[in-house]
């Protein structure tokens, strides 16, 4: 079985809930049932995922306030950063892993059960780690493993459309620190 290289996997992701600071606004990114999060991640429904940010009213007020520079786009980038942190991998990778899990849920859930694990009881990063493990385990050789890894880890065109400066802003100091801890490789 091909092995993951050192640095492939962030070493210090954070499980929800955790604190979020959006400019001067203090928020909490609350935990939600893993199955619910996987479903939203699989479809890239960041607006639904944004509902885990509390207090919700404060978020909406910022988006409506004409004197506040915060836009929907900022909320999108913030949600991506939150779930990057919680998933322990970039947003696009988390989406693809979640989509794989949701698409083949009966098989994945059955395999987890055979290992004595209930995936819905695990934090998000652990479930996604299991999905990645299953995907990589199924590769016949190193070439296929590299190909699968690229499919999972390379950002898609829709991600490239949000320019890199904004991604840098969104994927905050905490996010970068996570990758530095993981061996200095950034996505």
């Amino acid at each position: 079985m091909p092995r993951l290289r050192s640095g492939d996997w962030p070493k210090s992701p954070a499980d929800l809930p955790f604190a979020v600071r959006w400019d001067d606004l203090k928020l909490t990114a609350r935990s939600a049932p893993t199955g619910w999060v996987l479903g939203r991640l699989a479809t890239g429904d960041w607006l639904e995922l944004a509902s885990t940010l509390r207090p919700r009213r404060a978020v909406t007020e910022r988006l409506l306030d004409p004197n506040d520079a915060a836009e929907l786009r900022d909320l999108c980038l913030l949600v991506r950063a939150v779930y990057t942190q919680a998933a322990g991998c970039p947003w696009w990778t988390a989406r693809r892993l979640a989509a794989s899990a949701v698409t083949a849920w009966p098989q994945f859930d059955g395999w987890c059960a055979s290992q004595g694990v209930d995936p819905l009881e695990l934090p998000l990063r652990r479930v996604l780690a299991l999905v990645r493990f299953r995907i990589m385990e199924g590769c016949k050789d190193q070439a296929e493993a590299e190909s699968r890894k690229t499919e999972l880890d390379v950002p898609g065109p829709e991600d490239a459309r949000l320019d890199s400066a904004d991604l840098r802003a969104a994927e905050s100091a905490a996010f970068m620190a996570m990758y530095v801890a993981g061996g200095g490789e950034t996505p």
């Binding site: 600071r21 520079a69 905050s172």
Partner: peptide
């Protein structure tokens, strides 16, 4: 506790 910071441009 982790604090994630986002600054609006």
């Amino acid at each position: 506790m982790t604090t994630l910071t986002y600054t609006t441009d």
